[in-house]
C-alpha cells in the first residue's frame, strides 16, 4: 500500500467532518473518491497533505506515518495536492507559478527536466509562460494548477474536483491528461462530484457520504451499483 488512511476523524470546531474513514491507494493506481457537496472530500485531501490535523487516526505514506507532517513538508515526501478551485497564484506569471511548484527542488537539472515534461503535457503553457496566471480561463487554470503540482516531481497527486466548472470537452481533455500522468508512474487520488467521469478512468473507487465511506470497490462495481446510479449518476 502506498497511501493508507486509517480511522481518520477530523473536526472543524464542533462539526465532525470525517467520522473515521479508512481507505488506501496502491502504487500506480487511480483511486476515485466520490461524493456530494459537503461530504468531506476536500477535508480528506487537506488532512493527507497536512493543511488540517485529524483528532484521531493515521495517514501512512510508503510505510511512514505522515499524520502530523505539516503541509510544507508533505511535498518533499512526494505527495502534492491540487486544491479545489485551482488556487493558482493570480499575480504571478505562468513561469513563476511553475517555479513555485518546484520550490523544494534544488537540483537545477531536475527542474529543467520537469519543466520540459510539463511543457510536453501542457504545450499551451509554454507559449504563455510570461502571462499572469490570473488572466487564464478556468480550464487553463486547472492545467496550470496540475502543471505546477507536477513540478515538484510527485509520486502521488491529490486532485480536488479538476472538472469543476469546466465544459464537457475540457473535462474530457483534463481527464485524458490525468490518465497520461498516471501512465508516467504517478499514483492518483481523484476527488470528484462528477462520478461518471471519475469512475470511467479510475481503477477503484470509494463513495463518501457525510464524513463516512459507505461503499467501495472496483470502479466498475461502483459504477454499476444501484445506489450510486440513483444518487450520483442521475438515475436510469
Amino acid at each position: 500500500m502506498m497511501l493508507e488512511i486509517k480511522n481518520l476523524h477530523v473536526y472543524y470546531g464542533a462539526i465532525h467532518a470525517l467520522k473515521g474513514i479508512n481507505f488506501h491507494v496502491d502504487e500506480g493506481e487511480i483511486v476515485a473518491l466520490i461524493g456530494a457537496n459537503g461530504a468531506g472530500k476536500s477535508t480528506t485531501l487537506s488532512t493527507i497533505s497536512g493543511l488540517l490535523q485529524p483528532s484521531q487516526g493515521n495517514v501512512t505514506f510508503r510505510g511512514e506515518d505522515i499524520t502530523i507532517t505539516p503541509a510544507e513538508q508533505t511535498v518533499q515526501k512526494g505527495i502534492v495536492q491540487v486544491p479545489e478551485g485551482r488556487k493558482i497564484f493570480a499575480t504571478l506569471t505562468v513561469m513563476e507559478n511553475l517555479e513555485m511548484g518546484a520550490y523544494t527542488q534544488r537540483n537545477k537539472k531536475q527542474f529543467q527536466k520537469d519543466l520540459e515534461n510539463v511543457f510536453t503535457i501542457f504545450p499551451r503553457l509554454k507559449e504563455r509562460q510570461n502571462q499572469l496566471g490570473g488572466t487564464f480561463s478556468g480550464g487553463e487554470q486547472q492545467m496550470l494548477a496540475m502543471a505546477r503540482a507536477l513540478m515538484s516531481h510527485p509520486s502521488m497527486l491529490l486532485l480536488d474536483e479538476p472538472s469543476m466548472g469546466l465544459s464537457p470537452i475540457l473535462v474530457e481533455q483534463i481527464f485524458e491528461i490525468v490518465q497520461d500522468i498516471n501512465k508516467q508512474g504517478t499514483s492518483i487520488l481523484l476527488v470528484e462530484q462528477n462520478a461518471q467521469m471519475a469512475l470511467s478512468i479510475a481503477d477503484r473507487a470509494y463513495v463518501l457520504e457525510t464524513g463516512e465511506i459507505n461503499l467501495q470497490g472496483s470502479a466498475q462495481e461502483v459504477l454499476h451499483n444501484p445506489m450510486v446510479i440513483e444518487a450520483y449518476l442521475g438515475g436510469h
Partner: peptide, 13 residues
C-alpha cells in the same frame, strides 16, 4: 496571495 496554497508548494509560511 494565498497562504495555504503556498504551504502546499513546500513553502514554510
Amino acid at each position: 496571495q494565498d497562504r495555504s496554497t503556498a504551504s502546499l508548494m513546500g513553502i514554510d509560511v
